[in-house]
């Protein structure tokens, strides 16, 4: 088993929570893991990424090699494209549809969708809508994780228990909301494969 995943988004959008859930799930399954994150300057509304590597064997590099990522999971559509050089020829992109516009020259979002759709293996998901349905707009990142879950070689139940561990402190309501968000994302994605 080997999953090399790029997580991307804008500082503050919660990609590190996605990483944490997958990380906890990987540990539960005794997989080896390396996860490199961005801290510092770009967390102020700049582009952020995390390289997450899970494997049945010890992982060497903390960074994924160009052209070798199995999956790009993005909470923002333009940010998904920023990491295309990492995507392997048969890798998948799973991205949120809603743009985060904090720059004056943000391109028309249709042009971004067009680029994403030109990649065979891609799923664009309206995570904002599904998150609200699940109970809170704050679970957008978890909806995206749910949509990516069929492509991660970790049992779905482990992702659920990862969510429980991560959000357990915040109370059962928050946990349930996130579990619902995860499921909504997954249900959407399985119809697209």
């Amino acid at each position: 088993m080997k999953n090399d995943i790029i997580l991307s988004g804008v500082g503050g959008q919660g990609i590190l929570s996605i990483a944490a859930v997958i990380g906890l799930a990987a540990v539960e399954n005794n997989f080896f893991l390396k996860q490199s994150e961005v801290h510092g300057m770009s967390q102020r509304g700049g582009d952020v990424q995390s390289h997450l590597r899970i494997s049945g064997k010890p992982v060497d590099s903390d960074l994924i090699q160009l052209g070798k990522a199995d999956l790009i999971i993005s909470v923002e559509p333009m940010e998904a494209l920023r990491y295309l050089p990492w995507l392997s020829p048969d890798g998948w992109i799973i991205t949120n549809s809603s743009p985060f516009i904090n720059i004056p020259d943000y391109p028309p979002v249709e042009n971004i969708y067009e680029e994403i759709n030109s990649i065979n293996n891609s799923i664009i998901i309206d995570a904002g809508y599904l998150a609200k349905e699940a109970g809170s707009a704050r679970t957008e990142n978890i909806v995206v994780l749910g949509a990516a879950s069929p492509f991660i070689d970790i049992p779905y139940e482990s992702l659920e228990s990862g969510l429980r561990k991560l959000f357990g402190r915040k109370g059962e309501d928050i946990v349930q909301m996130n579990l619902k968000a995860l499921k909504a994302g997954r249900d959407f994605a399985v119809t697209k494969i």
Binding site: G45, G46, D47, M78, L84
Partner: peptide
């Protein structure tokens, strides 16, 4: 693959 032209820099 290359980064498509629609991708703009996003400074902090």
């Amino acid at each position: 693959r290359e980064v498509p032209g629609v991708v703009k820099t996003r400074p902090p």
